[in-house]
Computed example of a mutant assay.
Amino acid sequence: MIQQVSTEEQEFCRIHKLSEFDLQYQEMAEEFGQITDLAATIAGTEISFLNLIDNYNQWSISANEFRNIPREDSICSVTIQSEADHMEVNGLHLDERFQSKEYVKKEDGFRYYFGVPLQLESGEKIGALCVLDRGEKSISEKQRRFLKLLAEEIVGKLEMKRKIHELEYALITAEKSRNQIAHDVRGPVFGISGLADTLRDEEITGEEMREYLDMISKSANGIIEMTDDILNREARHHLLNAHLLNIQELRNKILELYRLPAGAKELSLNVQLSGEHQQVTFSRRKLLSIIGNLVSNAIKFTSEGGEINVNLEILQKEACYFLQILVSDSGDGISEEGLQKINDLEPGTSLGTDGERGFGLGLPLVKQMVAERNGEFHISAGNIKGTKVAIQIPIK
């Protein structure tokens, strides 16, 4: 008997798959902009976008810009929910699903849309490649085939980036282990070298013993030089740094991504830094996905004029460092039932303060991603004004 998978479970798998790519959306235009330009040229349309759709937002990449809109305003969100391999709408202003969208209803709004889902080998659709035009038109079967090939090319590039990142993170982890071994080896080797030097200076057993001890000393010094090489290779240092952030850089990325969505709802978004270890660097892996889901959730459930506060701090406990993330908002809080669903990693749909639609997957997804980084997740008890989430993730 085939087990049926619920829509909520499918959607959770989909957005979790997207989070595994650990994409820096605002940095993708350089790599994928030419593909969107080519898509618009093939279709003969004004513009094309690579759209990636998470639990709350559509992140749009083109050759000349990067933007995001709420997911409920996205045409591509409808495209990826369909079983078809494309969606075409000629007359967006006449379609009940889209005619009220701001970019459609204005006088010079878009009229034509063609979108192809970005479907992974495992089946999940993480977004779409689309073309848009302000005039009504149609495209040929040949043009459609080329656009589908471009969509496959995008998926291939994204899959390759994910595999490269996984290998790089594995290399970084191995590098840290090797460096630790090198440090551990240096102490004993220095002791051997020092002992050999001492014994050489003591005329205990004659010339033959001195020659033997000389060999020990040279061998030990050779090992020391080898460990220095392991610790100081510039290429490895560069690779490691490419995946590291400090909390000031993390703060800037959060504000860059979410200041406009918060401002659109007239919310105050404050990201503050605390503590004495602000220059400590750490892996950025999944951090923007974790914090982004928390901030997006706060935006959704906080009424106009409210505020969202994010506090970032590096904590030191003995020889270990932890990144502490505190996110709070002035919304209505979360019920005991909703809190239990989050703790059980169970989706629960609800509308935002402006009627925003969602699958209720953001906080369960955050909890799972934090667990994948061996961190701790805590959320305030139900029926308290506002929602408060505290996360600690080991970083060193």
Rank of each mutant, 00 (worst) to 15 (best):
L38H: 09
D201L: 11
A264R: 15
M28F: 08
E168G: 00
G362A: 13
G331M: 00
E88I: 13
L150Q: 03
Y113Q: 04
P347S: 09
C76G: 01
L213Q: 07
L171C: 11
D332G: 15
E168Y: 07
F190Q: 14
Y112H: 01
R186V: 11
G292R: 02
I393F: 01
V271F: 04
A242T: 13
N179M: 10
N270A: 13
V310W: 03
S77Y: 07
I393T: 00
P347R: 03
L94S: 13
I247Q: 03
V295W: 03
L158N: 02
V155E: 05
A371N: 07
I342M: 04
E166D: 15
S48P: 02
T302G: 04
E107G: 07
I308T: 04
K105S: 14
E152T: 10
Q143K: 06
D85L: 03
F110H: 06
L365R: 01
A235G: 12
L294Y: 05
A298E: 00
I334P: 00
Y56T: 11
D332H: 12
L287M: 08
E307N: 13
E8F: 09
A84W: 02
V366I: 11
R97K: 12
I334F: 05
L257D: 07
R97E: 09
Y169N: 07
K341C: 13
D229H: 11
Q392M: 15
R97P: 07
S48V: 07
A220T: 04
L323G: 09
N297M: 08
I224S: 04
I35V: 14
I139V: 13
A298M: 02
R259Q: 12
N179F: 06
N179V: 09
R134F: 09
R134W: 08
G358E: 02
I154S: 03
G362C: 06
L150N: 05
T41K: 13
I216M: 12
K148F: 04
G292C: 06
L147Y: 00
L149Y: 08
F190T: 12
L260F: 12
F66C: 14
H16T: 13
N90R: 02
T302D: 06
L23D: 03
S330H: 05
S328A: 14
Q119F: 06
P70K: 01
Q279M: 09
S193H: 09
H16C: 11
L257G: 03
L326M: 15
C130W: 00
V131A: 06
Q180A: 14
I216R: 02
S296Y: 05
V155R: 05
A84F: 09
N383E: 15
G338N: 08
S274C: 10
M160L: 15
S6W: 08
I216D: 03
G331R: 01
G194F: 08
Q278K: 10
H238A: 14
G222S: 11
T387F: 05
M209K: 01
G331A: 04
V116G: 00
W59G: 01
P394G: 07
A40K: 00
L158M: 10
E30D: 15
